[in-house]
């Protein structure tokens, strides 16, 4: 199911959608499914399941720690697909956020087929641009999967136009120049970027990187179609350590808070 269903629903409510990220296999295989289901129950409209990768160039220390824990726990590509299946079964559109090499290694067409079979909506591909993504564009088009590429404050108008033309589902606007991780203030570069992106496409635009609380979510929701949160969710589980109950409670509370944020704008 495409993420566009969730965006239409949010638009009908006159609010932004809330997109939540956790890596598969974190804190462990079952734990990540439990956590993602809690996030859906508590108000995430779209779920991003991260595929843990050994060399996560775009991730800050928080997500790196979670990814490392998942890999040390033996998380495999097939576990990611199983996680997608469990989360998509809740009815929330579920996409995979992944570095490129694991997809290429699995086989692009084979990955697309497995993702489709699992009920996944598509892929977010942060470390590749449409220029190098030919086989994925083809495989996704054949199956109507969402293709979510990133645009950045540094994107030129030409590249921005090229990138959004290759997207389906939504466009991921990176709010800051930097890696993932919570930041104290709301992003200042995101507004102008969303404006430029809006001029180039009718697709919904999600803003991610650095958003960790309801106030920041409300601020971004005022101009974006979705607020994307990752590190802040990861942080609640890292802080709770082995106390799974406490971790899920904190995760639920944060999700509810952010869900109120996107409705406040």
């Amino acid at each position: 199911m495409s993420v566009s269903v969730a965006f239409e629903k949010a638009r009908a409510d006159d609010r932004a959608a809330l997109v939540g990220y956790l890596p598969a296999g974190f804190p462990d295989a079952e734990g990540s499914i439990d956590a993602l289901q809690v996030m859906v129950e508590a108000g995430c409209d779209v779920i991003e399941v991260g595929l843990p990768y050994s060399d996560p160039v775009m991730d800050g220390p928080t997500v790196q720690a979670a990814v490392q824990q998942a890999l040390e726990g033996g998380s495999r590509t097939t576990d990611v697909l199983r996680t997608v299946e469990a989360v998509a079964a809740t009815g929330a559109p579920t996409v995979v956020m992944t570095a490129w090499n694991p997809v290429e290694r699995y086989g692009v067409e084979r990955f697309a087929a497995a993702l489709d079979d699992a009920g996944g909506a598509g892929l977010i591909t942060p470390d590749i641009t449409p220029d190098e993504a030919g086989p994925w564009l083809e495989a996704a088009d054949a199956r109507d999967l969402d293709k979510i590429f990133l645009v950045a404050p540094s994107s030129t108008p030409e590249r921005l136009a090229m990138t959004v033309a290759s997207c389906r589902g939504f466009v991921y606007a990176t709010a800051v120049m930097g890696v993932t991780g919570a930041r104290s203030s709301a992003p200042t570069l995101a507004g102008p970027l969303v404006e430029r992106t809006r001029a180039a496409t009718d697709l919904p635009i999600g803003v991610g990187l650095g958003i960790s609380n309801a106030d920041q979510a409300a601020e971004v929701a005022a101009y974006a179609d979705a607020v994307i949160v990752g590190s802040a969710f990861v942080r609640t589980l890292l802080d709770a350590g082995t106390d799974r109950r406490a971790g899920l409670d904190a995760l639920r509370a944060l999700t509810e808070d952010l869900a109120r944020g996107v409705r406040r704008a």
Binding site: V57, M58, W100, P126, D127, I128, T129, D131, E132, F149, L150, V151, A152, P153, S154, S155, T156, R159, T163, T174, M177
Partner: peptide
């Protein structure tokens, strides 16, 4: 575009492409 036969290219985040 930086390809040597089947190899090379630019598999990078969009944020770095302009640079």
């Amino acid at each position: 575009t930086g390809h040597y036969g089947d190899f090379g290219g630019r598999f990078m985040p969009e944020a770095l492409v302009a640079a």
